[in-house]
C-alpha cells in the first residue's frame, strides 16, 4: 500500500512542477492555485507513504521518481529530446530504487 501512496504522490508532484512552471513566479493566479492544490495533495499522500517508508528513503524515491516523470512528460508532450544523458540519469534512479528494494530497505 505504501508504494501505491508513493506513486500517487509522485503523480501530483509532477503536476506541481508543471503548474509551477506555468505560474511564472506566482504571477498567474490560476496556475498558482493549481500549484498549491496539487502540492497539498502530494504532501498529504506522501505523508501516508512515509508512515511506512523511512523519511530519507521515501523522500528520495518520491522526488527522484517525480524528476523522471517530468522528463518523460517533457519528451511525450512538450517535444523535448530524450538524449543519452537523460537516459543515464533515469537509469541511475531506477537502479537505486531497485537496489534499495532488493536489500530490503524500501
Amino acid at each position: 500500500m505504501h508504494w501505491l501512496y508513493l506513486a500517487i504522490a509522485v503523480v501530483f508532484e509532477v503536476a506541481v512542477a508543471v503548474s509551477a512552471g506555468k505560474a511564472q513566479g506566482f504571477t498567474r493566479l490560476g496556475w498558482s492555485v493549481a500549484t498549491l492544490v496539487s502540492g497539498g495533495i502530494a504532501t498529504y499522500v506522501l505523508s501516508l507513504a512515509l508512515i511506512t517508508f523511512e523519511v530519507g528513503v521515501g523522500y528520495a524515491i518520491w522526488t527522484s521518481a517525480a524528476g523522471v516523470g517530468i522528463v518523460f512528460l517533457g519528451a511525450l508532450f512538450f517535444g523535448q529530446r530524450l538524449d543519452w544523458r537523460k537516459l543515464l540519469g533515469i537509469a541511475a534512479v531506477i537502479a537505486g530504487v531497485v537496489g534499495l528494494q532488493l536489500t530490503g530497505t524500501a
Binding site: G67, R85, A92
Partner: peptide, 14 residues
C-alpha cells in the same frame, strides 16, 4: 550507497 545513486541520478537528470 543506493540513496547516493538515486540522488545523484536525479541531480544529473535535472
Amino acid at each position: 550507497a543506493w540513496l547516493a545513486l538515486i540522488i545523484g541520478g536525479v541531480v544529473w537528470l535535472k
